[in-house]
Design a binder for these strands. Sequence first.
DNA 1: GCGATTATATGACATAGTGTCAGAATTTGT
DNA 2: ACAAATTCTGACACTATGTCATATAATCGC
Lengths: 240, 240
Amino acid sequence: MFLDEAKRLLLRHGYHGLTFDRIAKATGFSRGTIYLHFKSKEDIVLALVCRGMERRYDMIRRAAKFHGGTRERMQAVGESVDLFVRLYPDDVRLFHLGNAEAILQRASNDSLRAFRECLRRTVAIATGIVEEAIAKGDLSLNDDVTPEMITFNLWAITELGHSGAASWTPPAELGITNPLDVVNNGCEMLCDGYGWKPLSRDWDYAETRRRVRSEIFPKESQKLEAMRESAVQCMPAGGS
Amino acid sequence: MFLDEAKRLLLRHGYHGLTFDRIAKATGFSRGTIYLHFKSKEDIVLALVCRGMERRYDMIRRAAKFHGGTRERMQAVGESVDLFVRLYPDDVRLFHLGNAEAILQRASNDSLRAFRECLRRTVAIATGIVEEAIAKGDLSLNDDVTPEMITFNLWAITELGHSGAASWTPPAELGITNPLDVVNNGCEMLCDGYGWKPLSRDWDYAETRRRVRSEIFPKESQKLEAMRESAVQCMPAGGS
DNA sequence: GCGATTATATGACATAGTGTCAGAATTTGT
DNA sequence: ACAAATTCTGACACTATGTCATATAATCGC
């Protein structure tokens, strides 16, 4: 498929290295043919982003069904994203790459709509959990605070942390050694700040995360373990 | 200057609308001349971003000197960024536009270094305040939490909130009506979560923000007021 | 099986932007 | 007033884009 080849080229050569000519050469079709499927190269990039976001959405949706308290379920959502980032770092890089004006400006309306729709659905899951927490009394907000605000802030920490993990400007260069831990800690502290019960000091959320992995994502966790092992075998003495 | 014209074109026509030809036409110089100053159009964009970031850095530095407790000073930093976003929304849009692989991939090493250096300096101010808070006992962190982590999470909320405010994908489309309030609330709750004293329930941080405005940014606040008034006069009945 | 219709694929063409460089124009120093 | 240094130019070679008349292949009715 065109998309797979485009993804390969994009990851290998970066945005400016992805051209219709190259995709044509690599797939054996002519340039004109590819134009029948995609309006522009930016359209291809956004299509790739959408494909990855749908996969992430599926994982988040599964996580949201975790059997536990509302804050545990939000934690499960966080854990699913963590897992996604570890399993598909390439997709995370694409998310960041695609979320730029240079791309969105030229993408087709259809792709753009699909993209936004997927984002909306994804965020809605989190907001649903917040609303449930309010309904159940685990969380109570001031009048000027909406459930969407909590989602947005959790989302910001998560998104920027993971973007940075994969490709952001000064990666771990200054102070941040493990972005995934930072994200987790930030979300936990933010929920504590909002007084979302049970607070982190009253509950072992690390244990919750382990349960999420074993109960909801056994296959994914296993795959991750396999990846880790093969990575260790590839470079046993550590990098530079 | 080339940069001013480039900024105008970039804001009006977007990334793909900015070309050397247009800058040349608009400034009266030839294309070749502009190439003597900038390696590529991406280099121009990054130079614009740097210019704006230096301005923001200056405001943040001034804010960090606010006379008050450590958490108040962090609040002052947040307020300075809030002010910056309101005063120079165009620059915020450029930050977001420039922070993309499509740009960074092609920028010159010099610009890139300047860009990172400015970011580092800016973030360092915040981290310094966190460290001082720890030293003074206003804040105490678990062993596995570093000052940089707090900075990073505050930064994530701020950056993404403001990016969204100016140009991000689903703007206020779903749930978020005033991104600046969201950012402020998120930072406050995050600090509360970390237990940074005095907690928001024990201190009137809205009053602190007012003091920051009048004591450190009187001119800027006045300018903002003037902008608000002229905006009201331009469209007195409100938009669609 | 066969002609007709529809879907899919092609590559040459016109257009637009990039980056370079030998040499022209201008400024500066004396 | 003249040479040296600086600044600027626009034509050139190149790469990529997006389009479209035409060719090829698949599908369908019979």
